[in-house]
C-alpha cells in the first residue's frame, strides 16, 4: 500500500515537472508571433487612435484636437470620404460578376471536359500575377490610340472608345478585375462541387432532370456557404482596393477614388500630410471592414472547420 502511494507520488512529481517545462516551452514557442503582433499590430493600432485625435504632420509635435477629424468625416466635409466608400461599393458589381463566372467555369470544369488542368491553370494564373504589371498591361489594352480593345472594335467596323474616361472607366476596371480575379473563387467552387455527393445527381438523373435543373437545384444550393464567403470577402476586398486604382487612374476621374487611395493621399505631401485625418478615415474604414469580417468569421466558421 505504502509503496504504491509512494510510486504514485513520484509519478505525480514527474508529471508536474514536465508540466512546468512544457508551459515554459509553450510560452517560448508562442512568444515570437505574439511579440510581433504586439509591436507591429497592437502598438500601431493604439497609436492610430491617438494620432486620429491630433493634428500631426510628422515633423511638428502633434496637437490634440479631440474628435475634430471624426466630426469632419461625419459632416458635409466628409463627402469625399463617403464618395470613395460609395465608389468601393460600386465595385461590388465586379464581385458578383466574378462569382457568377467562377461558378460557371467551376461547374464546367467538374464535368469530363478535356484539357481541364490547362484551363484551370489559365484561369488561375492572373490571380498570382503582380497587379502593378497586369494593370499596366490592361492600361495598354484600353489605350485609345494603340489599345488592343479598340483594334478589335476596328476590325468589326466600330468606333473607337475612350475606355478610361469618366463614363467608361468603372466598367473597364470591373471587366479587368473580374477576368483577372475570378480564379480564386473558381478553385473554391471546384473543391466545393467535388464534395457534393454523387448520389444527389444520380437521383436527379432518375427523375429526368436536365443539366440546367441539376445546376440550379443541386449545385447552387450546395455551394451556398462558399458563395456567401466569396461575397463577404469580395466586399471587404473592394473596400481595401488600392493598387489597380493607383496605377491605372490615380483617383481621377473622381469615380475611381477609393478609400485607401484617399487615405494614402492624405498622408502624402500633396494633401498636406494630414496624418490625423488620414488615421481617422482609416479607423472609420477599418471599423466598417472589421464588422463585415466579424460577420463573415462567425457565419463561415462552420465551413472553415469542415474544410480543414
Amino acid at each position: 500500500m505504502a509503496v504504491l502511494s509512494l510510486k504514485e507520488g513520484k509519478a505525480k512529481k514527474g508529471m508536474s515537472r514536465r508540466k512546468v517545462t512544457d508551459a515554459l516551452w509553450g510560452y517560448l514557442c508562442v512568444s515570437p508571433l505574439a511579440i510581433g503582433l504586439l509591436l507591429f499590430l497592437a502598438a500601431p493600432l493604439f497609436f492610430s487612435i491617438y494620432v486620429s485625435l491630433t493634428k500631426y504632420d510628422l515633423f511638428n509635435a502633434p496637437i490634440f484636437v479631440g474628435l475634430k477629424w471624426y466630426a469632419q468625416i461625419f459632416s458635409a466635409d466628409g463627402k469625399e470620404f463617403w464618395n470613395s466608400i460609395k465608389n468601393a461599393f460600386v465595385m461590388v458589381i465586379g464581385t458578383l460578376l466574378s462569382m457568377i463566372l467562377a461558378l460557371l467555369t467551376a461547374n464546367v470544369l467538374c464535368t469530363n471536359v478535356k484539357g481541364k488542368n490547362v484551363f484551370k491553370a489559365i484561369f488561375f494564373v492572373p490571380t498570382i500575377c503582380s497587379s502593378v504589371a497586369t494593370t499596366i498591361m490592361w492600361t495598354r489594352m484600353y489605350d485609345y490610340y494603340f489599345g488592343t480593345v479598340n483594334q478589335i472594335l476596328n476590325v468589326f467596323g466600330l468606333e473607337k472608345v475612350y475606355w478610361l474616361d469618366e463614363g467608361h472607366v468603372v466598367g473597364s476596371i470591373i471587366f479587368m478585375t473580374v477576368l483577372f480575379g475570378f480564379g480564386t473563387a473558381m478553385l473554391l467552387y471546384i473543391s466545393s462541387i467535388k464534395s457534393i455527393p454523387k448520389s444527389y445527381y444520380e437521383a436527379a438523373d432518375l427523375d429526368g432532370a436536365n443539366a440546367v435543373q441539376k445546376f440550379f437545384y443541386i449545385t447552387v444550393p450546395s455551394v451556398s456557404p462558399i458563395t456567401f464567403y466569396i461575397l463577404v470577402t469580395g466586399l471587404i476586398g473592394c473596400l481595401q482596393g488600392f493598387t489597380v486604382f493607383q496605377v491605372m487612374t490615380n483617383g481621377s476621374p473622381a469615380n475611381t477614388m477609393m478609400p485607401v487611395l484617399l487615405i494614402y493621399k492624405y498622408s502624402g505631401n500633396d494633401y498636406g500630410s494630414e496624418y490625423g485625418l488620414a488615421s481617422a478615415m482609416a479607423i472609420v474604414l477599418g471599423l466598417i471592414i472589421a464588422i463585415l469580417t466579424g460577420i463573415n468569421f462567425l457565419l463561415s466558421r462552420k465551413w472553415v472547420y469542415y474544410e480543414s
Partner: peptide, 28 residues
C-alpha cells in the same frame, strides 16, 4: 503544449485577423 492562458492568447491572435491592415498603415 499546455500552458496557462493558452486559449486566451490563441483567441487574441485569431481576433487580430479582423483588424484590416488599413488601420495600421498610417500609424505604422
Amino acid at each position: 503544449l499546455k500552458f496557462p492562458g493558452k486559449k486566451i492568447i490563441f483567441g487574441a491572435m485569431m481576433a487580430t485577423l479582423v483588424i484590416p491592415n488599413i488601420i495600421i498603415m498610417v500609424p505604422a
